[in-house]
């Protein structure tokens, strides 16, 4: 078990190293002098020189990289060019908003997708299965931003049941927060649900073909016990990995959803930074998202043997 965990943790190191090199190079590839950009005044040569020394830009590249990595490891992601606010603080604040949108969508999607995928597989090629598969394909085919606009049009504008855009934090006013969250959460749930259902269905089909299921049936166990006790445990493991990956698509999916619904989360922060060419923020968001995403996937990998003890032997 420990060897398995250690191996999984060690495997992350090259990934983080390459991503950090990429993020570092990305900023260097942008035309223009970062020091000039920071000062914002081309004429003030003395100030530019001073900032250049402060930022360590007069040092060789590998030393710059080393210093930068040490800074990042200490949680210092630099300062936003727009607001002059430390990027790390802003990211933490924005992330708490994004979590409020992602978490309910993530839980709802899993609650719907796991049983739906299992039932579809259990009744493979029946009318019910075809219906579930069709619904999931339709969900996959509808662009999230269009669905968001349609929901705003119907529930926000025509029926006037829910606020169209904006955000209230759960900690401020729970009732209002839920009213603002309903539409974005529906959109994200529908999209995540579709992908999860497909994986759950596929892995259930595979498990149902195993000999031990035939054996369980021959023993006279009821279908519901077979599904709950034998199929679920074995089919859930691949879906667990998928759940970790689904978080990645949620994290990037919110960039668009937050823009449509004007939710001040991580996604909108990045999109605004892209418009404003706020490079420290772009770089910081990239590193932050990769860190969160890698951590969650590591967690899924570490939990995997709990559901499927065979893997840790490999």
């Amino acid at each position: 078990m420990y060897r398995y965990a250690l191996k999984k943790i060690l495997l992350i190191i090259p990934t983080l190293l390459i991503v950090s090199l990429f993020a570092f190079t990305l900023i260097r590839m942008i035309p223009g002098d970062p020091a000039v950009m920071f000062v914002g005044d081309l004429q003030d040569a003395a100030a530019v020189q001073k900032v250049r020394r402060q930022m360590g830009l007069d040092q060789p590249v590998y030393i710059q990289y080393y210093r930068w990595v040490r800074q990042v490891a200490g949680g210092n992601l630099g300062v936003s060019l727009m607001t002059r606010e430390p990027v790390f603080n802003a990211l933490a604040e924005r992330f708490s908003v994004t979590v409020q949108v992602i978490a309910p969508a993530f839980i709802l999607a899993a609650i719907i997708a796991v049983p739906a995928g299992m039932i579809a597989a259990w009744r493979q090629n029946s009318r019910l299965d075809n219906a579930i598969v069709l619904v999931m394909i339709v969900c996959l085919s509808v662009p999230s931003f269009w669905l968001a606009l349609l929901l705003i049009l119907i529930f926000g504008v025509e029926l006037n049941w829910l606020p169209s855009i904006g955000f209230v934090s759960v900690t401020e006013d729970l009732g209002a927060a839920i009213r603002y969250l309903v539409l974005p959460v529906i959109v994200l749930t529908l999209i995540e649900m579709a992908m999860l259902t497909r994986v759950m269905r596929a892995s259930t089909i595979e498990v149902l073909n195993q000999d031990y299921i035939t054996h369980a049936r021959a023993k006279g166990l009821s279908e519901s016990i077979i599904l709950r006790r034998h199929v679920f445990k074995n089919a859930f493991a691949p879906t667990l990995t998928m759940l970790g990956l689904a978080l990645g698509s949620l994290l990037s999916g919110t960039a668009i959803i937050e823009t449509v619904f004007a939710i001040p989360g991580l996604g909108l922060y990045l999109v605004d930074a892209v418009y404003a060419r706020d490079y420290p923020v772009i770089q910081g968001t990239l590193l932050f998202v990769v860190a969160v995403y890698t951590a969650v996937n590591l967690l899924a990998d570490l939990l995997y043997p709990v559901f499927d003890p065979r893997v840790k032997l490999q």
């Binding site: 999916g253 995403y293 890698t294």
Partner: peptide, 8 residues
């Protein structure tokens, strides 16, 4: 490493 960054 590139897979660790969400595509969009």
């Amino acid at each position: 490493a590139f897979l660790a960054m969400p595509a969009i």
